[in-house]
Amino acid sequence: MLELRLVQGSLLKKVLESIKELVTDANFDCSSTGFSLQAMDSSHVALVALLLRSEGFEHYRCDRNMSMGMNLNNMAKMLKCAGNDDIITIKADDGGDTVTFMFESPTQDKISDFEMKLMDIDSEHLGIPEAEYHAIVKMPSSEFARICRDLSSIGDTVVISVTKEGVKFSTKGDIGSANIVCRQNTSVDKPEEATVIDMNEPVSLTFALRYMNSFTKATPLSNTVSISLSNELPVVVEYKIAEMGYVRFYLAPKIEE
C-alpha cells in the first residue's frame, strides 16, 4: 500500500511539466526515502533524476519499495486537472496495475480522483558516481532560461566556459555568433538574484542547446539553478525543490572528433 499526500500539489504539476518533454515513459520508485525517478531521454544523451523526500509529504506511507511505470504525458494530463492550490494524494496497492491521483480543493468542497493505468517499463538505471566538479555556477533560473532561449535563436550548441572572470555562454550559427558573460554578483539585494561562481579549475564544455532549453522547463520549480561542470563529464543542471528535494538534469557533452 502506498499513500503519499502532498499539500503543495502544484509542485508535482510543475515537476511533470519540467520532465515530460525529455522523457516519455518512466518508472517512479517509492521507498522510505522518498518518491524518485531516474530516466534517460530516448537518445541516451540526457538524464533526469528527481527526488521528493518523504519528509516533504504531509503523510507518507510506503509499506514496501514499489516501482510504478507511468507514461509522463498521461500523468501530466491527469495532474493538469488538479487546481494549483489542491492537495494531491498518490495512492496505489501493492502489485496493482493502476495508480490513483486524488485532488482535494483547499476548502475540501471538491474531491476528485483520477485513476491511471500503470505500464511495464524496462528500467535502465545508471550509476552516477559522486564527482568533484571543476566549477559550480549558481544563478537565477530565469536568467539561465533567458540565455538558453536567446542563444538558441542563433545557434544549435552552447559553449559554457568558466574562468575567474565569470561564466561565458557562446554560440555560433549561420547568421553570426553570440557571447554572454555573467560575472559573479553577490552584492544584490536578494540572494536568489545572485550569480555565484565556485571554480577550482577553468572549464569549457559544449552542449546541445535543444536539451538545455528542455531543462529550463523546470524554471517554475526554483528561483535559482546550479550548473556543475567538469571537463570531460556530463553537466548537471539542478533545480532544488524547496524543502523536498530536487530535479537534476545530466547532459553528455559534445566532444571533438
Binding site: M40, V45, G127, T206, A208, K254, E257
Partner: peptide, 14 residues
C-alpha cells in the same frame, strides 16, 4: 566538428 557523446560513456549501467 563536435560529436554528441552518450551518457553511457561516463556512467555505468546499474
Amino acid at each position: 566538428a563536435n560529436k554528441q557523446s552518450k551518457l553511457s560513456a561516463f556512467f555505468t549501467m546499474k
